[in-house]
Amino acid sequence: MSDHDETKADSAKSAEHSKKAKSAKNDKTERIAALRPAYQKDLAAGADRFLAPRRTHCPWCGSGRLTPRLRTTDLLQHKPGRFTLDRCADCGHLFQNPQLTEEGLEFYYRDFYDGLGEQRMSGAFGGRGAMYRARAEALLPHDPAPKTWLDVGTGHGHFCESARAVLPGTAFDGLDFTDGVELAAREGRVDHAHRGAFPDLAPELTARYDVVSMFHYLEHSTDPDRELRAAHEAVRPGGHLLIEVPDPESRYARLLGRWWLPWLQPQHLHFMPVANLRRRLAGLGFTVVAEQHAAAHDPVDLLAAVWLALDHTAPREDAPWLPEPPGALRRTVRTALLLAGVPALITATLLDRFAIRPLSHRLGLANAYRLVARRE
């Protein structure tokens, strides 16, 4: 091929790429416009209607000694509403108070993992194979060859897909209440899909699994204790339960305040100190055989904090929960601010990965912990 022909071919590819990008942008604009009337109708009575009455006692230990720990807004989707996390002075449990109602959960989850957000979140979760394999490897010292594994809150099944490289002889099933789990089955990422609420499905799964995993799932549940009892039901005697959750005792939670990504309001409803969870598991008949902090740490805290602050400061990008699309000036200002923040984002990434990650547990900065528990 001559240089002239190569130049023509490159130009054609560039034009095709530009055409596809423009088409995708137009498609998203049309989808947002189509969704706007329904969102505006939902918000006509205000966002407070999505909150249940405030609790006066801790849902974990029953104590009435509650103090506000954090007040914030939705820093990811920027849907309207204000949210409070309370802390129990007796057991240290943190929880959203008042908590979202079932209608509120539907509203704030809508278009985050599915709909408008499906492609973005699928890309984010799909690119974390090394982290997923490390989670599977945490079981190996305790059971090197489980036959059956149920991943609760599996989403699109990316953990199960990656874990097969660690445990090729294990059958991986997924459970979730969204249609993502059915997509995971169609794509072959899980062997069998269970769609619904885990406590409701647990009786038909009694003692079926060698392993049940809950990776960043319990903090989303309205009743963590009920989920743990369901796990006890689904794990066979001698089998294992793997749990990974944000660590509310991380120093980052205090240092970064509302910009600490694991707060993830309003989706995260409960935050359990590790001692609380260990005691609850023991009461259910589990023995904790491993506790990991550094291994569960996801090195994104500073990067996420910088991004959340930049995104909060910049004018909003178009979304169906906004009354109208932003004008050209607001779009330009947003782009300029985000571009100006690129050096800070790069610096935060380098600090997260190379300076802080090796010392995360020693400095008390690990943002999550992982427990491996055996059902006796």
Rank of each mutant, 00 (worst) to 15 (best):
Thr67Cys: 02
Gly127His: 07
Arg374Gly: 05
Leu150Ile: 01
Met272Ile: 00
Leu363Tyr: 01
Met214Ser: 12
Ala231Asn: 08
Leu85Trp: 14
Phe83Trp: 02
Ala44His: 02
Phe215Ser: 13
Leu218Gly: 04
Leu70Thr: 04
Ala185Ser: 14
Pro59Met: 05
Ala328Gly: 00
Phe286Ala: 05
Pro323Cys: 09
Glu30Ile: 12
Asn26Gly: 11
Arg110Val: 01
Ala294Gly: 03
Trp263Met: 05
Gln99Ser: 15
Leu228Val: 01
Arg331Glu: 07
Ile243Val: 15
Phe177Glu: 12
Pro144Leu: 02
Thr29Tyr: 12
Met1Ser: 14
Ala336Tyr: 00
Gly117Met: 03
Glu187Val: 06
Thr7His: 14
Gly92Trp: 04
Gly115Pro: 00
Glu324Arg: 12
Asp301Ala: 06
Asp311Trp: 08
Asp247His: 09
Ser14Lys: 14
Lys147Ala: 13
Ala234His: 08
Leu175Thr: 00
Gln265Cys: 15
Pro224Val: 02
Lys147Glu: 10
Val212Ala: 09
Pro358Arg: 06
Glu187Lys: 15
Lys28Ile: 04
Cys61Ser: 11
Leu183Glu: 15
Gln292Trp: 09
Thr101Glu: 05
Glu161Phe: 04
Arg31Tyr: 01
Asp111Pro: 01
Ile32Ala: 03
Gln99Leu: 11
Leu205Ser: 13
Ala185Lys: 11
Pro224Ser: 01
Asp48Ile: 08
Tyr113Gln: 06
Tyr217His: 13
Glu204Pro: 11
Tyr108Val: 02
Leu167Asp: 02
Pro299Gln: 04
